[in-house]
């Protein structure tokens, strides 16, 4: 992946800005899409520590996929995990809500805390309600739009709630995912007949319906066209005020567009972690510099 002739970078409005700006690339080769005008990370007063990854190592059998990684996950910020394929970023993401446990050979060392509590002590289901996941492929359930969002709410309720009681929560989740205006007239519409971008936003709505504290996104735009990608990126930037957002992406420009903090991983190690500005603009590590300039990966 190289950026020899980078496309214009559309800067999303960050907190405090009213309009999006389009930044023309200056065409200076490596890391050229990093414009000097990128706004500094959202004010730190907004950011609240939600999760803490401490010395986390994950192995599949004898193969080490994540090697003693430590980083914080904060609400009010978007954290992007970048790195070449197989570098362990998706594994790290899945370990945050213990989805790695579904793989029988996976073993985990180290600690992950959510609001100060070790996630290993949680019931997996209650952890996954507070830390929800959106996957690479849009995977709406084979039900109506309404039932997709209501599914989690129904599963959480101790007795089966009536449709009327759920309506508000479903509408709220769809609004937060920016899908409400498109589906409000036909909530009984089969979810699998929506377009790819709408399906992915439905999956985000579904993940938000549980009112999670952390939202994990595993390459949410890789199966989507540029326009849908745009919509979802806007959405992610908006969401970071309410939930901590962690996104895995292969797309460096996307990471640059939406992330406040970036973690670059290579062969399971966390090579560099820092504000997006710094990782893309002035990487401290040689390997980071090579990667963000498109030398490998």
């Amino acid at each position: 992946m190289g950026f020899l002739s980078p496309p214009p970078v559309r800067k999303l409005p960050l907190a405090g800005e009213d309009t999006a700006r389009v930044v023309e690339p200056n065409g200076n080769g490596a890391s050229s899409f990093v414009s000097s005008g990128r706004r500094a990370v959202a004010s730190t007063s907004l950011a609240v520590d939600r999760m803490q990854v401490e010395e986390l190592s994950i192995a599949y059998g004898s193969k080490l996929a994540v090697d003693s990684v430590s980083l914080p996950i904060r609400q009010g910020e978007v954290l992007a995990l970048i790195g070449p394929s197989g570098c362990g970023k998706t594994t790290l993401l899945r370990s945050l809500n213990r989805l790695t446990e579904l793989t029988k050979t996976a073993s985990l060392k180290g600690r992950i805390t959510l609001d100060g509590d070790d996630t290993a002590t949680f019931e997996p289901t209650s952890l996954r309600r507070r830390v929800t996941m959106v996957f690479q492929q849009p995977n709406p359930f084979p039900m109506s739009v309404f039932d997709n969002v209501a599914f989690v709410l129904r599963e959480q309720a101790s007795r089966r709630p009536r449709k009327r009681e759920l309506k508000g929560a479903v509408e709220d989740a769809l609004r937060r995912a920016g899908l409400w205006d498109e589906v409000k007239h036909d909530l009984a519409h089969p979810a699998l007949r929506l377009s790819g971008g709408q399906q992915q936003r439905l999956c985000i709505a579904r993940a938000l319906a549980a009112n999670p504290e952390v939202l994990l996104l595993d390459e949410p735009c890789s199966a989507l066209d540029p326009q849908s990608t745009q919509v979802i990126e806007d959405l992610i930037v908006q969401l970071r005020e309410e939930v901590a957002v962690v996104i895995v992406t292969h797309n460096l420009q996307q990471a640059y567009r939406i992330a406040d903090y970036v973690a670059f991983m290579y062969l399971g190690e966390l090579v560099e972690y820092g504000p997006a500005e710094q990782v893309f603009g002035a990487p401290k590590q040689e390997r980071t510099r090579e990667y963000v300039s498109g030398a490998f990966g």
């Binding site: 507070r130 995977n139 989690v152 993940a207 994990l216």
Partner: peptide, 10 residues
């Protein structure tokens, strides 16, 4: 689909 539901805490 199954992972999607598991990832939501079901």
């Amino acid at each position: 689909w199954l992972e999607g539901a598991l990832g939501l805490g079901v």
